[in-house]
Nucleic acid binder design. Structure first.
Lengths: 203, 203
DNA sequence: CCATTAAAGGTACTCTAGTTCCGTTAGAGC
DNA sequence: GCTCTAACGGAACTAGAGTACCTTTAATGG
């Protein structure tokens, strides 16, 4: 065997999978702070040296967890109506954030992103992917003539999620279906009013 | 002197002020994680035992810092036009989040809130106060007939901030004046469309 | 199937965040 | 201005997160 060969197969991949799963569990239970890499190693039935060598810090581990999460994506809706599509998106986000496990996970990775550049990079890529996945439903609405032609699709999708994350992280207000629906309606109303057109350069 | 007297005056208050200022500086420099209470004590020229005794944990200290921040509030705008008032609010938030010191501080306290119940409580009270301070400009717009009568003022104010915080914490996209203005316009458009009316109970 | 060596595992160690203990300082009441 | 004690300060101590070092396992290429 030649020198310098990388060995991603078999054991290495198995260890990574076990550690990431354990990291998710530990994050949900203890949160981003109070997260002990030795505890993660124990849960994953893996040497703690391995965890420290491969991931180094809690933030590094979370960054890898996010990269892994970005790979599994959910299909977007396509109902033929902008408001219905946006509502579907808003409710998907709402259910995710309200879910005890998923919600805690998202909080944890967002926290990690504010502490570590790699985690931040992974988080931003994650949302860039998610937003790009849903942008087509705005583009279709433009083609159908529901929205101004120069509407920025990403901006509309971001506008749907923003109020939900604001509640999760900032105001702490409850995130129910009514809130999700209002977020979708608000984004649609603003888009229709031309707020998200690229020609709209406010003084 | 009687047993059980509390002594908030003089030294105690001085120590608190010095520690909170030092905590702010340290948060801005190192962030919420990597924050060492011994370091805060050193900066404040105070015994580290004192810091541990009075605040216990990093999260506890940040919670107190937030309580202190909530007390100093900025006056709201009153231009006589909804969109102008909302724009003023959006730009105020934008400048705060973009400012190196303030931005880092806000990130830190939001992170602290996801880790500690007391910090969360303090954060939610902080934003409840800020939102209540700005709600009157929506109420006036309602009185002027710019918005439907049953519009929820708090919801409009939240809608202005949400996209900015979303960028700060989630997507990592830049937060410039144009973004702030768009946030204000979007909130105004949605409000005018009746999205934030209490009678709007989406299926 | 065998040789080679990434990558994992175990143990002993270090270093520092957080605690304990006790002596000192200074604010509140008379 | 004297007393009492809440609150602060310093130093020694403890625990556990993170590191270093060396051994063992198993993936890869021939």
């Amino acid at each position: 065997m030649t020198v310098g060969t990388i060995r991603p197969g078999g054991r290495t991949a198995r260890v990574r999978a076990a550690v990431l799963r354990a990291a998710g569990d530990a994050l949900v239970e203890h949160g981003f702070d109070h997260l002990d890499l030795a505890d993660v190693a124990r849960r994953a039935e893996v040497g703690k040296t391995t965890v420290y060598r491969r991931w180094g810090t809690v933030a590094g581990l979370v960054a890898d967890l996010l990269t892994d999460m970005a790979e599994q994506s959910l299909p977007r809706a396509d109902t033929g109506s902008l408001i219905e599509d946006l509502r579907a998106n808003a409710r998907l986000v709402q259910r995710t954030l309200v879910d005890p496990r998923q919600g805690a996970l998202f909080r944890a990775v967002i926290v990690a992103a504010t502490c570590d550049p790699r985690a931040a990079e992974a988080l931003h890529r994650f949302y860039a992917i998610r937003i790009a996945e849903w942008a087509p439903c705005v583009q279709q609405a433009v083609r159908r003539g529901e929205l101004p032609s120069s509407t920025d699709p990403s901006e509309v999708i971001r506008a749907v999620s923003a109020p939900l994350y604001y509640r999760l992280l900032v105001s702490g207000d409850p995130i129910d279906e009514a809130v999700a629906d209002r977020a979708a309606e608000a984004a649609a109303a603003a888009a229709r009013a031309g707020v998200y057109t690229s020609t709209n350069s406010p003084n």
